[in-house]
Amino acid sequence: MDAMVYLDNAATTFPKPSVVYDAMDKMNREGAVNAGRGSYKLAQDASRLIAETKDLLRRLIYVDISAAVIFAPSITIAMNQIVNGLRLRNKAVVYLSPYEHNAVARSIYELAKKKGIIVKEIPINSDLEIDLEKMKYEFAKDRPEAVFCTHVSNVTGYILPVKEIFEESKKYNCVNILDSAQSMGLVEIRASLMKVDIIAFTGHKTLYGPLGIGGFINISGVPLDVFISGGTGSDSLNLEMPDGKESRYESSSCNIVAVAGLNAALKDIDPVFCMKREKELSDYLIDKLSSVKEIKMYLPENLKRHVGIVSFVVKGFNSEDIGTILDEDFDIAVRTGYHCAPFIHKYLKDTGTLGTVRVGLGQFSTMDDIDKLVAGMKEIIDA
C-alpha cells in the first residue's frame, strides 16, 4: 500500500528528522526529570540542555546572550504572554497585518475589550501584498504603539516585508513583534537588521522539532508584565514571580522531552537547504496547478516573496469536500477552511467555497507528491 501523501506541513511538519525522534526517545528513557527543581546530576543536565537550546535559538537569529529566550508550551501561549504583558496605554493604537493568525488576532481582540486599545490593520493592495505607502500614511495619521506581523502567511505563503514595516514603525518608538511560526529555520532572520523587538516561535513547524515547545525571544528587553504565574523551582516562599529576565515568565515544569527534540532539530536544520528545497517545490506546484483552469490560486504578484504554502479554490466545489475526497479516495492530506486566520479571507473572498484548500510543503515533500495531488485534483474535477 502506498504511503499517505502528507501536504499539511503548515499545520505541523511531518515527519521530523530521525535525530529528533532519537533525542526524544533517549530523553524519555534516560533523563526526563524536572529541570530547575533539584540539585542532582540529571536535573542539572536537564538545565544545561535548556540553556544550550536557548543559545542555539539565539545563534539562529544572530543575537547574543543578552536576548532573553523564554520557553512556553506553544507559540499561542507565548503570544498571550506578550500581548497581555505589554504595557499599552489606554487608547493605544496597535497594528496587525491582515495575515495574522488567531494566536495574535484573538489575543489582541480580547485585550481590546478589556483595555480599550484601538486595533488597526496594515493595508494591503489588490495583489495581496502589503501596501507600504498606504501603511506609512496610516502610521503617520494614527501612530502605532505596537505592531504585530507574521513573517510568512500560513494561508498563502506570502513572505511579508517585515524589515520595511518594522523600520517604518520604529520611527514612532513602536514595539515590533514578529510571529515566526512559518519562517524560523526557513527564511533567514537577522534580528539586528530588522528592528524587531520580540520574536515568537514554535518548535513544531519550520524548525522541524516536536509539538509542546515554543516561546519568545525578547531581543530588546521590552518590559513585560507577568501574565502566567506559578512555580519556578526557586524562591518558593516568595509570592511574587522572580525578577529574572527569563525565569520571571517561565512558570510550571519545562517539557524537557520536547526541548531535547528541539535541540536536535536546531542542530540538524539547514535553513539555506530548506529554503531552496521548498522554493523549488512551491514553483513546481504552482506551475502544475496553473494548468488546471478550474483552480484559482491565491499568490502574491511577486513570487520571490512566496514559499512553502499554496492556497486555492476549485470552481463548482467547496473546499471541505475537496479535502475529504483527497483524503478518502487518494490518501492525500491537505488542510481546508479558514486556517485560523480571520482577516485575510475577506480579501480572498472565499466564503462561497468555505475557505481554501491549503497545500503545505516541507523539506520531505517530493515532486511525486505534487504530481499525485494534481492528478487527484484533475480526477475530482473531471468526475
Rank of each mutant, 00 (worst) to 15 (best):
A3P: 07
V5C: 09
V5I: 14
Y6I: 13
L7K: 04
N9S: 08
T13S: 12
V20H: 09
Y21Q: 00
D22M: 07
M27W: 15
G36L: 12
G36E: 13
R37Q: 08
G38Y: 13
L42Y: 09
I50Q: 05
I50H: 04
D55W: 06
R58M: 11
I61P: 09
V63W: 04
I65A: 14
A68M: 03
V69W: 00
F71I: 11
T76C: 04
M79I: 12
N80V: 01
Q81T: 04
G85C: 05
R87Y: 03
R87M: 12
N90T: 10
N90V: 11
K91L: 10
A92D: 15
V94C: 02
V104N: 12
R106F: 14
R106C: 11
I108E: 05
E110L: 11
K115A: 09
K120M: 08
K120I: 07
P123F: 02
K134W: 00
K136A: 15
F139Q: 10
K141A: 10
K141R: 13
R143Q: 15
H151Y: 15
H151L: 07
V155E: 00
G157I: 02
G157P: 06
Y158F: 15
I159Q: 10
K163L: 02
E168N: 07
C174K: 11
I177V: 15
A181E: 05
L186G: 11
E188V: 00
E188S: 14
R190T: 13
D197P: 12
A200E: 15
T202R: 06
H204A: 05
K205I: 13
T206P: 06
L211C: 01
L211V: 08
I213M: 11
I213L: 14
F216G: 09
F216N: 10
I217K: 03
S220L: 04
V222H: 03
P223Y: 05
P223A: 03
G230E: 02
N238K: 07
N238G: 02
M241L: 07
G244Y: 02
E250V: 03
S253Q: 07
I256T: 12
A258V: 04
A258G: 05
A260Q: 01
N263T: 00
K267A: 07
D268E: 15
I269R: 08
I269D: 07
V272I: 12
F273N: 10
K279W: 00
S282N: 12
Y284M: 05
Y284R: 00
Y284N: 03
K288G: 06
K288D: 08
K288H: 08
K288A: 10
S291G: 06
K296T: 15
R305D: 13
R305P: 02
V310C: 12
V310E: 10
S311I: 03
V314F: 00
K315N: 11
F317C: 01
L326P: 03
E328K: 12
D331E: 14
A333K: 13
V334M: 06
G337L: 08
F343E: 03
K346R: 15
Y347W: 10
K349G: 09
T351K: 10
T353S: 14
V359K: 01
S365H: 00
M367R: 14
K372G: 04
K372Q: 14
L373S: 11
A375D: 09
E379H: 09
D382H: 13
